[in-house]
Nucleic acid binder design. Structure first.
Lengths: 197, 197
DNA sequence: AGTATCTTGGAACAACCGTTCCAGGATAGC
DNA sequence: GCTATCCTGGAACGGTTGTTCCAAGATACT
């Protein structure tokens, strides 16, 4: 009965996540994880099971973190259109600072990379996309109820457009994009879909 | 004076491109290229120089092909807004058929993957994005000149929004997306940005 | 203190990575 | 038919991949 680890699995997962985030799953070796966490191979395998399972755990952790800080407020904000605007401002703000500016969004990266070959990874990706889409949809329906949308506007279509746009914003290579310009673009897009033909 | 290759470098590059497209650069081994092309390692290295240079050549070839069939018509179509609509219909159409449906767009994949660490790769990506953006911009300016846009519409912003949207459409993991729904979404987006506040 | 149980460090594994090398085959000019 | 030149096949390179194994260390209970 000496099942006390010499490290904190939670911090280790956090460090591992950062490596996968920066390099992608394919380009990351176990050695990189060992170097980053300071853990031993044995401990890694005993705790997380292997590279692929560790990547899954890291991606899941990232997705939940990101959902909490980005989607949570949108889901709880009942103001309608202003809530959507606030969401995109948060998105662009975080997108252009710190690790996001350098590495893009780990979920969006996984969407485009070979990582999505794994069904379990794909499940996380789908979950995240559905949650984004439905949060936007709910906010837009709320906006419609508060008469903030032009007559004939379709919350369904608008949510889909904005969800795709959010993915475009998240692309890694557009890291150098001007934050102010991106903010203006996103705001204009929200206004555009709110006042359709 | 026996500098006659026993194979066609062009077909070989095409086959290699398909492998890189499907698997990404990091997940593709030289062996995969050997299997796909039927060539020998020696011939590969003598002709293309190495893995990274081969990937660059493949990406460049893909980008040019795709530009020709997708962006070319947009650049030559002077109808304005209908040209933009036609572009997105072409985009969604190809996006939902054949290899594109299975593997996404090689350029968009590279945007999100570790591939864009290479400056030369990034150059190809930037070139492609600029061309997309400026083709959309030109078409929207033309639309404005033909009074197809609402007063106060900004072709600059609209082009940026639509370029981001195009990237979102191209994401690999959204492969199973319903073509008709995607078409409708894209069309609605074009109409939305054409008739702003 | 003794023992059982888990964790840790580090070596070792086979398989594969991108790349290089060289002998032998194929071709073109003489 | 000979020779010079390039191309091809395949072995081989050192390094790295993800994973496994085991002895040694650390802890908690009796």
């Amino acid at each position: 009965m000496a099942d006390v680890k010499h490290f904190d699995p939670d911090t280790a997962l956090d460090l591992a996540m950062r490596v996968f985030w920066r390099q992608g799953a394919a380009a990351t070796g176990i050695q990189d994880i060992v170097d980053a966490t300071g853990l031993n191979r044995s401990s890694l395998y005993a705790t997380f099971g292997g590279k692929q399972q560790l990547y899954r755990a890291a991606l899941d952790r990232y997705a939940r973190d990101r959902s909490r800080t980005l989607l949570g407020p949108l889901e709880e904000d009942g103001r309608g259109l202003p809530a959507v605007h606030a969401f995109f401002e948060r998105l662009v703000e975080t997108r252009c600072t710190g690790e996001f500016a350098r590495w893009g969004c780990m979920v969006s990266n996984a969407h485009a990379g070979g990582e999505n070959g794994d069904p379990e990874v794909r499940a996380v990706l789908d979950r995240q996309h559905r949650r984004l889409r439905s949060a936007l949809h709910a906010a837009l329906v709320s906006a419609q109820r508060q008469r903030q949308l032009a007559d004939g506007a379709d919350p369904e279509t608008a949510a889909e457009i904005l969800a795709l746009l959010a993915h475009g914003v998240n692309l890694r290579s557009r890291a150098g994009a001007d934050a102010a310009a991106l903010r203006a673009t996103a705001a204009a897009a929200v206004d555009a879909v709110a006042r359709p033909v």
